[in-house]
Design a protein around this nucleic acid. Structure first.
Lengths: 136, 136
DNA sequence: TCTACGTTTAGACGAATTCTAAACTCGTTC
DNA sequence: GAACGAGTTTAGAATTCGTCTAAACGTAGA
């Protein structure tokens, strides 16, 4: 298991220190979606002396190296929307800006009958770049 | 314009103070999706003495009164995902927990040919409740 | 005018995250 | 094997976003 993780790190060009292995071990073997602080607390149970900064650095490194993804829609700050109609969202990867997409622009199938889930609402989050020279 | 906004506030049962009008004016007439702090900074340009707490209170009041929506996917904390395969997400409204939905569970149509946008990635974000008594 | 209630304010507070500078590790060179 | 240097980790300070508090303020109605 530990060995696996070391290989994965190396394959991504990450020097496998003890701390990084411990973080990777936790983060790659959970199907939860832990926050950075949760990762810190969990990893501390195995490696009590690990510092918070290391965990944050490591997670950011993993994201940078493609080992992990930061959840696209976890913006980190509260964002407000004066458009009360249902609509989807487009996130510009360059600027981080969020644009509205009309509800009718996209269609999602099967969403109401998801097995095991009671659906109250949904939307599509699209990421990319606003194409140049097009009227808005 | 100011008059418009005052009417809107009153229609939502909000006492229209100078500060609230200024916030409403900015927030209802932008198609950006400003963060609370951005709103504060913008409104300060018109009303330099306005305090941060007022802006936050006002925004929350507007959300409560249905004038504004807080963006559903702004989780407030960075969350990481070790599942690098494409997948959708389900957010449990009770617990705030995030679950993965297999990519094949949902289909989105028209997304690749969105006019004016260069699409790199997309996903569906579903909110609701996990249905009781179902195997995961 | 007086009262009462709602509103605004500055600043303290707290949580999440980043920054900084020093200390540590470890492989390489002399 | 001592000295070096690059990379890594550390504690704690700093920053940022957001909430809370208590006092001051404003204003509508008796």
């Amino acid at each position: 298991m530990t060995h696996d993780v070391m290989t994965v790190l190396q394959e991504h060009g990450i020097q496998p220190s003890a701390q990084r292995v411990a973080v990777a071990e936790y983060v790659l073997h959970t199907d939860e979606h832990p926050s950075a602080d949760t990762v810190w607390k969990e990893v501390q149970r195995r490696l009590p002396q690990i510092s918070r900064a290391t965990v944050y650095n490591t997670l950011n490194l993993f994201v940078e190296k493609g080992l992990l993804r930061e959840l696209e829609f976890a913006a980190g700050i509260a964002v407000f929307d004066s458009n009360l109609e249902r609509h989807h969202h487009f996130i510009d990867e360059d600027s981080g800006r969020i644009y509205d997409l009309p509800w009718s622009a996209l269609t999602v199938s099967h969403v109401e009958k998801l097995e095991g889930y009671e659906v109250h609402d949904y939307q599509v989050v699209v990421r990319g770049r606003r194409a140049p020279r097009r009227k808005r």
